[in-house]
Simulated scan of single mutants.
Amino acid sequence: MAARPETARKILVYWMDGVIVLLALSLSVFVAVLVAEGRISVPHALAAEACLLGGFCLFPFLLRAAFDNRPRPTVRLVVSGVAALGAVLLVPSSPNEALGESSWSMVAFLWLSAVVLFQPMWAAVCTGVVVIVLTSAVVTVITGQPWQVVLPVQAFTAVTMVLAMWLWRWLWWTIRDAHESQEAKAGLAVAEERLRFARDLHDLLGHSLSVITLKSELAAKLATKDADRAAREMADVRRLAGESLAEVQLAVDGYQGIDLNEELDGVRAALEAAGTRCTVEARADDLSPGTRALLAWAVREGATNVLKHSAATRCAITIDGGVLEMRNDGVRGVGAGGGTGLRGLAERMATAGGSLSAGPTPTGEFLLRAAVPG
């Protein structure tokens, strides 16, 4: 469905926003505890908190800017990098604050995870090496730990956060590409069907219409010279026209000859595969073949609209006495007029003496109702 990839995108982005908020709150609480214990001064804490919040507040904008593609580095990316550097430098001054150092260095690694969304692989690797070396040096100087111990820990943390962000965006790209490929496949199938129909019509009518044209011209020329032969030619024209009409009707019937039960099964499978729970209640065994065919077309069109134009989570299909009702909860401001598919279906229903209506209901659902004489 058109709405589902966008829903997946929002879930992924908002999930990351939630992680950022939790991380920002935890580090802010850490700063407050340090101030309360007198380990750092209030100005020191305010400066550190400003850098912290600056980096975290800019991160959601960076994520949204680079989630669908790889843009060029922006001013926001540079500013957030400066804020992350300030946060790392404004670490607690006590050499025993190893945990605090580890937490603060995560701010730099979070910024690095955003950098990989903007840079090609080689540039991201170079930037990552610089960030890991700088943060490791700061941690080594402040805590007094050997760099041989600090560097592997910092490198592991940085690589883990960068890979997590890269996989996060790759998951969205996979969802988006899969949806686009489905749409392309559906469009290709429609185009192929149109070409096949056009080819069939050409094969059926091309020869017959050419012969009809020639015989009509011949009859017109013979009308004043040989009336009997002109009459025979026009009789052939009439015969050929009748045969051509019958052939076209057979071709159209082949396109229209869909089975209602098969269509209901196919629609239910398609909707449930797209995440829409579908229930079917059909009592149509006593209906005529023509009525069943019309209802099958209505079911197909209704399901197409649900898949293309709604965000439905459930759909109910009922058929009773030549009356079809399809209800779904995915109303998105669709009017009763509908698109070209619904208009064509309404014309077909009207030709058969039936009716079609489609539009939102007072209960917040979308209802497609088709009534066909049994």
Rank of each mutant, 00 (worst) to 15 (best):
S181Q: 15
E183N: 07
K185I: 00
L188P: 01
L188T: 04
V190S: 14
A191R: 13
E192Q: 13
E192N: 08
R194F: 12
L195K: 10
A198V: 08
A198L: 12
A198P: 01
A198I: 05
D200L: 15
D200N: 10
D203I: 09
D203G: 04
D203E: 10
L205M: 06
L205C: 02
L205V: 05
G206M: 10
L209E: 02
S210C: 01
V211Q: 08
I212K: 02
I212D: 00
I212E: 01
I212W: 02
T213K: 06
T213G: 04
T213A: 08
L214G: 00
K215T: 02
K215G: 00
S216R: 02
L218R: 08
L218T: 01
A219T: 04
A220E: 10
K221R: 11
K221C: 05
L222R: 00
L222W: 00
T224K: 09
T224L: 13
A227K: 11
D228K: 15
R229D: 03
R229N: 03
A230E: 06
A230K: 03
A230W: 11
A231L: 09
E233P: 10
M234G: 01
M234T: 07
M234F: 12
A235W: 08
V237N: 08
R239T: 02
R239V: 03
L240C: 01
L240I: 06
L240T: 00
G242C: 06
E243P: 04
S244F: 07
L245H: 05
L245D: 00
E247L: 13
E247P: 00
Q249I: 03
L250T: 03
L250Q: 07
A251Y: 04
A251S: 09
V252G: 05
D253T: 06
G254T: 04
Y255W: 05
Q256D: 04
G257N: 11
G257D: 07
I258W: 13
D259C: 12
L260P: 05
L260V: 05
N261D: 12
E262W: 15
D265E: 15
D265R: 14
D265V: 14
G266L: 15
G266Y: 13
V267C: 14
L271Q: 02
L271S: 02
E272C: 11
E272I: 09
E272R: 11
A274L: 14
A274W: 13
G275Q: 12
G275W: 13
V280E: 10
A282Q: 12
A284I: 12
D286A: 15
L287F: 14
P289S: 11
G290E: 13
T291E: 11
T291M: 13
T291Q: 10
R292G: 02
A293R: 15
A293G: 11
L294M: 06
L294Q: 04
L295H: 06
A296H: 10
A296V: 10
A296M: 09
